[in-house]
């Protein structure tokens, strides 16, 4: 039996090594074309900006940075991308700051800082396999360990392993090396990274967006009944956060200020789909953010 275990162990080791090597052939943020597109643009034009908004689609689709800049005097770039989890954003920032030294006054606005829960439906999907390093993996495990959330510990373990070993990603990685990179609409760069769903629909007429806009949810009782609940949560909160809260291990901590902002809910007419604002909603969201920033922080 020892012979069999040794051989099986050796085979498993070689298999893991092969998978790890495959994964090493792509950048750490691989899997999100929009993020790659935005990072490339930002690296080339970093001098033009003094503020960054980082987060998920709720940042990308709902923070109109031009509007924010008008009210605050900043020069901001929206680095929000669909499906970005808090620790992913954190890791990405660390890598970005390592590569691009910033020795001037700079503000970074983060949507969330705590580890994000992985939904069961997203386990094994690319949405669930979010990129992290061991440092952040430990943070996530500790976070859920303290809460006794064994399911999330398991989900994070699976997601981490699958991401590091390219499980379920090999064909996509091969395509990534062989195929041309995905082209995005120039409006994304012109808007400094902000790309509302309404604008995307106008410019790209994506059929999936049409169905999202007219989704059953928007006309449902459930959506309408959200109104009183939503109305209560109109207040935007923003606060400067300490280094400990963001787990970054970069040298430029002194020249950069970090802020965390909350999300708000608006009445149904300000939504494009179930979870994202339309243009009017985005403007209100950004105005509230700028107002809060000016009053409480700036």
């Amino acid at each position: 039996m020892i012979v069999l275990l040794k051989r099986a162990g050796l085979f498993a080791l070689i298999l893991v090594a092969a998978l790890w090597l495959i994964k090493q052939s792509v950048p750490y943020y691989w899997g999100n074309d929009l993020l790659e597109h935005k990072l490339r643009y930002l690296e080339q034009n970093l001098e033009d900006y003094d503020a960054l908004f980082v987060g998920s689609s709720h940042v990308c689709r709902q923070v109109d940075v031009e509007e924010f800049d008008k009210l605050t005097g900043h020069r901001s770039y929206n680095l929000g991308v669909n499906g970005m989890f808090a620790l992913e954003a954190n890791y990405m920032l660390e890598k970005f700051l390592e590569k691009n030294a910033i020795d001037r006054g700079f503000s970074i606005f983060l949507q969330k800082t705590e580890p994000t829960k992985i939904a069961k439906k997203n386990l094994h999907s690319n949405q669930g396999k979010y990129f992290m390093d061991l440092h952040r993996f430990r943070i996530a495990l500790t976070h859920y360990w303290k809460r006794g959330d064994w399911k999330q510990i398991y989900y994070h373990f699976v997601a981490f392993l699958e991401n590091k070993l390219a499980i379920g990603q090999i064909r996509e990685i091969i395509k990534y090396h062989w195929k041309d990179k995905k082209e995005f609409h120039p409006a994304i760069n012109q808007n400094h990274g902000f790309y509302s769903l309404e604008q995307q629909l106008k410019l790209e007429s994506d059929s999936r967006l049409i169905s999202r806009r007219h989704g059953k949810y928007k006309s449902s009782k459930q959506f309408k009944e959200n109104k009183p609940v939503a109305a209560k949560e109109k207040r935007m909160k923003m606060a400067e956060i300490s280094d400990e809260m963001i787990y970054l291990r970069t040298k430029e901590k002194d020249s950069i200020r970090y802020f965390r902002f909350s999300s708000i809910k608006l009445d149904p007419e300000y939504y494009f789909d179930r979870g994202h604002f339309n243009d009017r909603g985005s403007r209100i969201n950004t105005e509230k953010m700028a107002q809060e920033y000016k009053e409480k922080v700036q």
């Binding site: 085979f11 070689i14 298999l15 092969a18 998978l19 386990l123 094994h124 999907s125 070993l165 390219a166 499980i167 379920g168 990603q169 090999i170 064909r171």
Partner: peptide
């Protein structure tokens, strides 16, 4: 044999989606 096992294993892990 080893090459075949490795190829099949990589294919399985790539197609594994839950």
């Amino acid at each position: 044999r080893f090459g075949i096992y490795l190829f099949l294993s990589l294919a399985i892990l790539d197609y594994f989606n839950g």
